[in-house]
């Protein structure tokens, strides 16, 4: 049986851990709030750009742009969004497991795909397995501004245009609610599954449809990447918050069971002492 002092020190260390996890939970809660707000602020932009892209791409079928047309796939790109830090429960491993399984089932050799990793955890995962990571970005702020993402997004779009890969999928954790997130796969490029808006508007183009698509489509693709990133940031903080709350709860439970053990051990020690004294007194008589 563990000594009194051992149990005591276990209780103290568990208490300290629970203080840390509690603090981390509150930090994540604040970040999660901001993250959800950012994701909401982005919605009007996304809706509008989707509407315009849909109207133009569907309205003028003769306007064919390289980004709209599927070409034979020699190489597939995967854009994987993970976090920089761990301690977020199954947040990262869920995304990585799905990407890994998909790649294993779709491709036979390492030359058939390349990976763009956002986030340190994902980068390390793929680097350790010797997979082809063409672009890696770590250290993205918790509340990313569009300007920070633009470089990443435009280089991802650029790699599609210059033929580094012929299609691009994005994998991220879609935010549903504080306790539920879902790994999502989205085909980013070519832009084949554009939602056709319900109210089609026929536009005048100034100067012409092709030139507008040249400006519009990269901007659209970039904003899809940004949207996925905001979504996954909200999920990350929600996942971390839940994980930390569970950790705090578990610590409380542990402390309770240790306290019980401690009290029992204390009681046992007292009983033993009394027995010894009584025994000693009896021996003297």
């Amino acid at each position: 049986m563990a000594s009194l002092r051992d149990i005591k020190s276990k209780i103290t260390s568990t208490k300290k851990t629970s203080q840390i996890t509690k603090a981390m939970e509150m930090v994540s809660a604040a970040k999660w709030n901001r993250g959800v707000m950012n994701a909401k602020a982005f919605v009007p932009y996304m809706e509008k750009i989707q509407e315009v892209v849909g109207s133009i791409a569907m309205g003028s079928s003769d306007a064919s742009h390289p980004m709209l047309v599927s070409r034979p796939v020699k190489k597939t790109g995967y854009l994987v969004i993970t976090s920089d830090r761990g301690l977020a429960g199954a947040y990262n491993s869920n995304v990585l497991r799905q990407v890994y399984q998909t790649i294993q089932s779709r491709h036979k050799s390492n030359d058939e795909f390349s990976i763009i990793a956002i986030g340190r955890v994902g980068r390390d995962f793929f680097a350790n397995r010797g997979m082809n990571v063409v672009l890696e970005i770590a250290g993205i702020a918790d509340q990313p501004a569009f300007a920070e993402i633009q470089d990443i997004a435009s280089s991802a779009v650029g790699m599609y245009s210059d033929g580094t890969f012929d299609e691009l999928y994005v994998y991220y954790s879609h935010y549903i609610s504080a306790i539920s997130q879902e790994v999502t796969e989205k085909k980013l490029l070519p832009l084949t599954d554009i939602d056709v808006p319900t109210k089609l508007t026929s536009y005048e183009f100034e100067p012409n449809a092709e030139e507008i698509l040249d400006v519009l489509l990269p901007q659209y693709a970039e904003s899809l990447v940004y949207g996925a990133l905001l979504d996954s940031k909200a999920s990350e903080h929600a996942a971390r918050m839940t994980a930390m709350r569970n950790a705090t709860d578990n610590a409380k439970e542990l402390i309770n069971s240790y306290s019980l053990k401690y009290n029992r051990a204390r009681q046992a020690a007292i009983t033993q002492e009394i027995t010894e004294i009584v025994g000693g007194a009896a021996a003297l008589e």
């Binding site: 950012n38 982005f42 009007p44 100067p207």
Partner: peptide, 27 residues
């Protein structure tokens, strides 16, 4: 008129005229 960016709406209002510079010239 509404000006929308990925970081959120910036400006929204009812106006009499909007003038800006498109790639083909003033508009």
């Amino acid at each position: 008129v509404s000006v929308v960016t990925p970081d959120g709406p910036v400006y929204e209002s009812d106006v009499e005229m909007v003038s800006t510079k498109a790639q083909t010239g003033e508009l």
